[in-house]
Amino acid sequence: MTSERKQILDMLAAGKITADEAEQLLQLTSKVSSGSSDASAPPAVIVKIRNPRFIRIIVEPNSQTIGNQAQHHVNIRVPLKIVRAGVNLASLIPNDAGHMVQNSLLNKGFKSDLSKLDATALDELIEALQELSIDATVDNHLVKVFVE
């Protein structure tokens, strides 16, 4: 087993990449090793997976929708940089004000302690988001959430 294949399988075992991504990478490494190009170079697709810039939320009416139901179109693209910057800004909020924000969020049903979200936790969160891909059908609308 080559070191590249072992590295890919380790990443799959650690949950850093999905099975589909691992399959793509294995195909790429087999192509590289069978060809005459430099096999030691990492596959370019890793860079593509590792650098998502935006979270996209798309809501479109299902093409199979019949009748005169209301049709919604939503297209939201949020830069991931703004999440990091927002956490940095939120970390400067004084404790008293932070508790007030926390209580307000709890009243709205958002049960999460944002004060525990530091830079390290945020990096882990963003890394986990790299594999985020949600396709759902809600009220005859297709909802897609993914990073790009």
């Binding site: 935006f54 830069p79 703004i82 990091r84 927002g86």
Partner: peptide, 8 residues
């Protein structure tokens, strides 16, 4: 960091 934000 808000550059690139899009809401439609």
């Amino acid at each position: 960091a808000a550059r690139g934000l899009r809401i439609d």
